[in-house]
Amino acid sequence: MKALRYLAASVAVLIALAPVYWLITISLKREVDQFAYPPQWIGFHATFAHYAEAFGGGSFAIYFLNSVALAAMSTLAALLIGVPAAYGLARFEWPRRWDQRVGDWILSTRMLPPIVTIVPLFLMLRGVGLINSLAGLAIVYTGFNLPFVVWMMRGFFEEVPREMEEAAMLDGESRSGALVRIVLPLVKPGLAATAVFCLVFAWNEFLFALILTQTQAAMTLPVGIASRVTQYEIQWGAMSAAGVVAMLPVLVFASAAQKYLVRGLSLGAVKG
């Protein structure tokens, strides 16, 4: 009975990982082996040619850098704007439960389906010439990550006893000084986890990027991969290599923030 449980759990793990493993093998196989029959799960001739093809001077290098820049910019902006709001909602006296109402409203904006706002956002950004630019997409991602930052950080701030800052402020520290020097160091793990989720969201996001970046120069990694899939002739090797590169940072970051996965994911951090 006990062995049976482990067997069942192992089967679940196998099903979860086999498709990912297959993607990795395709990215490493020579073209002749990629779709050989019988399928070669192990013992194939490995090559890094597809990685070189996709990223060495290939356009995937541009998409990769775009994705990195975009994730960094939008995360930083969301934290700079959102952390003070989270602190404000967690710490100050609000009349008529405004803190709760504003908090709920902020969270509800996160639940808007992207497809509802994408048409107006596309027209608005086109109007100001921010289509096909990283700046335009960074603004949209900031707006998307902001409710998440406020909601997550508010929870972390509420866990810090008020006496900590009050003592510092009695010693002559200003409110913002106390936040930066006393409170933020105490919530550092939570802040890091929040940042990780914002990075992952921006890195994984597809729909906004698909519509707002149509040119080679502005495309992100997911859009670049997708544009290869929908072409008539698919270069499976290069595409798989790009897919592997796209998933690695996410897996690394997510395992770093594992403790906070439940808290973050119940707010839909990975997928918009």
Partner: peptide, 8 residues
Amino acid sequence: PMLLPPVV
């Protein structure tokens, strides 16, 4: 599987 970029 849940952590992968949906495109991947």
